[in-house]
């Protein structure tokens, strides 16, 4: 008994350094940004405490909700694309010849920096000299789309490279999970006469459902706070058509010197991300309980 108790204190001691780091680097900044959200602050001068004004403005700010909607759309897109990744991984894990090479090819976009990817796709989308429109023109299309310049399609045009960028990451994780499915189970199913589709649907996918759940959460949370490609490719434009929460926060804080309001947006982002995570966990749990 005595040893257990003292062991706990040792455990506590061991945990302490990382706890301190997490506190300093994550939790304290969260509390601070929540507090900055209560102030009118231009980032340089004195802070003025204004109570809940920023948060009230935030709730009535149409632009914030538009950007939230765009972030949620990105989340939906990312989750849907998981289905595609799953199919690819299933094929790769089925001892296909050359799957090793293919796996490496899929991971390449992961290795490129976001800015490089953004520049690449900006060139591809260029309405006058870009690759896509050049092909379309040569095929005889007269009114080629403006892609990033068209407010109606700019957002979706950015989704594509984002999905492309993270494909390798998800495929690697799914692949690793799939090759860990015990061979005996698949063997047994095959003897019982199950075809490849049945094996995948009835055995492999249920066995990796834990990993899938984690990936759904990763995809949604990652999408909600997504920033880099959007910032480089359109800057949230044209006219906020591709604005997401993080880019809106950045614009308010660094573009307009509104650090108070920017912090309030950041805090809103945190609340929404937490709510989304909680919802997904709840939703997925009830499903598996059935």
């Amino acid at each position: 008994m005595k040893t257990v108790m003292s062991k706990k204190s040792v455990i506590a001691l061991y945990v302490l350094p990382s706890l301190i780091l997490v506190l300093i680097l994550i939790y304290i900044p969260i509390v601070l940004s929540g507090y900055y959200g209560l102030t009118d602050w231009n980032g340089v001068g004195k802070m003025k405490f204004i109570g809940l004004d920023n948060y009230i403005t935030l709730i009535h700010d149409k632009l914030f909700w538009t950007s939230t909607w765009h972030s949620i759309l990105l989340g939906l897109f990312s989750v849907l694309s998981l289905i595609g990744y799953l199919i690819v991984s299933l094929i790769l894990a089925s001892k296909l010849r050359g799957s090793n090479l293919l796996r490496k090819i899929y991971i390449i976009p992961m290795l490129l920096s976001s800015v490089a990817i953004a520049q690449l796709w900006v060139k591809i989308y260029d309405p006058n000299n870009g690759m896509i429109n050049s092909i379309l023109t040569s095929l005889g299309v007269e009114h080629t789309p403006l892609w990033l310049a068209d407010p109606k399609i700019a957002l979706y045009a950015i989704f594509l490279p984002i999905v492309w960028q993270y494909a390798g990451f998800y495929i690697i994780i799914l692949y690793a999970a799939l090759i860990n499915v015990p061979e005996e189970l698949i063997e047994a199913a095959r003897i019982d006469g199950a075809n490849a589709f049945q094996i995948a649907y009835k055995i492999k996918i249920p066995l990796i459902s834990g990993v899938l759940k984690v990936l759904v959460i990763l995809a949604v949370v990652g999408s909600l706070k997504y920033f880099d490609l959007i910032y480089v490719m359109t800057g949230g434009g044209p006219g906020h058509a591709s604005e997401v929460m993080a880019s809106y926060m950045y614009k308010e804080a660094f573009g307009k010197f509104n650090f108070g309001y920017g912090s309030a947006i950041g805090f809103g982002l945190l609340v929404i991300s937490m709510a989304a995570t909680w919802l997904i966990q709840k939703f997925l749990k009830t499903k598996s309980d059935d």
Binding site: D126, P127, T234
Partner: peptide, 8 residues
């Protein structure tokens, strides 16, 4: 103006 200038 050049086409697609809002993305340039």
């Amino acid at each position: 103006f050049v086409k697609g200038n809002t993305a340039l």
